[in-house]
Amino acid sequence: MLNQNSFSKEIMWEATVSCNPEYDGMFFYAIKTTGIFCRPSCRSKTPKYKNVSFFLNAANAQKDGYRPCKRCRPDLKRTTYDPLESIIVDTQKMIELNYWKDIHLNDIASGVGVSPFYLNRLFKNRTELTPRMYLENVRIEKAKELLTSTTLNSTEVGYQVGYKSISSFYNAFKRRTRFTPSQFQAKGVEKIQS
């Protein structure tokens, strides 16, 4: 439990009720009826005041028999925790590891455990790109690498980075670089020779 030099119970209760992230890492609250402890910013249902205990650190809450909330992850050593960040990171990794495959939004959403609609909206809000746009960026970056570091022609590169249609590859490449793949490859060769 807390010592006398810490925040008053009223301040901690107000931070808990308002889900105030400014207090994350300064204290934790535990709910006697559920056996769970949380960060002040946790968006779970507000507990009854009589069922709450406050702790200065996660270790003390765990020592008293409370388990960490799966929503706000107070057991992690970070001051703040954004559960949606892992969805973004996992989506990016999935795309980067599978860019050359015929990958669809439904596959990605299933892989990260959310609906396609939710993933599309969340990813766009956080990165300003849809997963499809991110996939295209990854493919074009890989194509640029291949065009400047291998002897593959632009058609071979297009297929190798996951495009099923060469016209789609050319259009996407030109949209991103302002060059056709062949022009880009020629410019890359010029730079190497000069």
Rank of each mutant, 00 (worst) to 15 (best):
A61F: 04
T155G: 10
E14G: 00
I87S: 01
R178D: 14
S194V: 02
F28W: 09
Q183L: 11
F169W: 09
P116N: 00
V189W: 10
Q62S: 13
A109D: 01
E145M: 12
K142D: 04
K9A: 09
C42S: 07
Q193S: 05
K187L: 12
A109Q: 05
P21C: 01
S149W: 01
D75R: 07
Y49P: 00
G162H: 02
V52Y: 02
Y163Q: 12
S167Y: 10
P83I: 05
C38D: 14
K191H: 03
N125I: 03
S165W: 01
K101G: 02
A59C: 06
T79M: 11
L135K: 08
K174M: 13
L119F: 02
E22G: 05
R139Q: 14
T180A: 03
N60E: 13
I36Q: 06
G25F: 12
F123S: 06
I36P: 08
I31M: 11
K144F: 07
G158L: 11
T79V: 10
R71P: 01
E14T: 13
F169K: 06
Y66D: 02
L129T: 00
L2E: 02
Q185R: 15
H104A: 11
S167H: 12
D102L: 05
K9W: 05
K50M: 01
E136P: 05
L76N: 00
I140F: 02
C69S: 12
P68Y: 11
G65V: 08
I103K: 00
E190T: 04
V17F: 03
A61H: 07
T33K: 10
T150R: 05
F173K: 05
F117Y: 09
P83W: 07
V161N: 08
L122H: 07
K63L: 14
T80W: 04
E141D: 14
P68T: 13
E156G: 15
D102W: 03
V157T: 11
L119N: 01
K174R: 15
K48W: 04
E190R: 09
M94F: 12
N60A: 15
R178N: 14
G188Y: 06
N106G: 00
